[in-house]
Design a binder for these strands. Sequence first.
DNA 1: GTTCTCCTCAACCAATGGGTTGATGATGAC
DNA 2: GTCATCATCAACCCATTGGTTGAGGAGAAC
Lengths: 128, 128
Amino acid sequence: MAEPLRKDPLDDVFAALADPTRRDMVARLASADATVGQLADPYDMSVQAVSKHLKVLEAAGLVTKVKDGQRRTVHLEAEVFDLMTKWIERYRQEAEARYRRLDAVLAEMDRTPTDPTNDHTTGAGAPT
Amino acid sequence: MAEPLRKDPLDDVFAALADPTRRDMVARLASADATVGQLADPYDMSVQAVSKHLKVLEAAGLVTKVKDGQRRTVHLEAEVFDLMTKWIERYRQEAEARYRRLDAVLAEMDRTPTDPTNDHTTGAGAPT
DNA sequence: GTTCTCCTCAACCAATGGGTTGATGATGAC
DNA sequence: GTCATCATCAACCCATTGGTTGAGGAGAAC
């Protein structure tokens, strides 16, 4: 018992997107590449701070930098997104399938009450 | 300029899933509800630590606890996942559309080189 | 050449996060 | 009633994070 749960690349991806500034950068990079300076411009923080944020995104594989003369052009890498969507979708669907099954069971119990003393009148159903 | 980027519920969701232990709990809860003790069992850490993790998941809205006598039954809430998938899909699709457009442009330039001095032989195209 | 711009690196600091231990409340077993 | 079990709360520790300032390197501009 207790495998230490080895480090997963998803750790870095989720962590990177947990910061609103970094999510905003990703959002902006989705519509166009940008230099570090351009990215930093709207935010109320130093360029160095933005550079750090970019390093986090880069380490997570969400972004790559291309040296372009004096500037660095930042480019969004969309492939990593698939990792996340796959993880999320897998468990979301698994969970929803389970709820559907539960609903079916409850409906069945409702139709043929085998034991009337067992009143399942709690709101346990309807996963809304 | 520099709106402080107001706190977004996605902050908590992404942050919650950035931890491998918490992702594992979510994975397990997808197939069945569980008590705190059952959840804690496989991990090499104290029950209190697991309780903290659950508080994080709960604050993010990923999980609810139902008092069930002495135990607390933990239940996965799949709705929040939609928030994430929507965010992710939006920007992934935006980015991919952009790449497709770029590919088209490059293909066009390749077919009808309007200015031969401008050698675009860099690997700028073909996203992978 | 000098100077200016773009970006990164390094050191620092306050706050947060993930873990620990110890104590406590509430319920179930006897 | 007493005692054990399940879970939480509180205090503490150390590592990480998100920001700062200051210094420096590599290119462009002159």
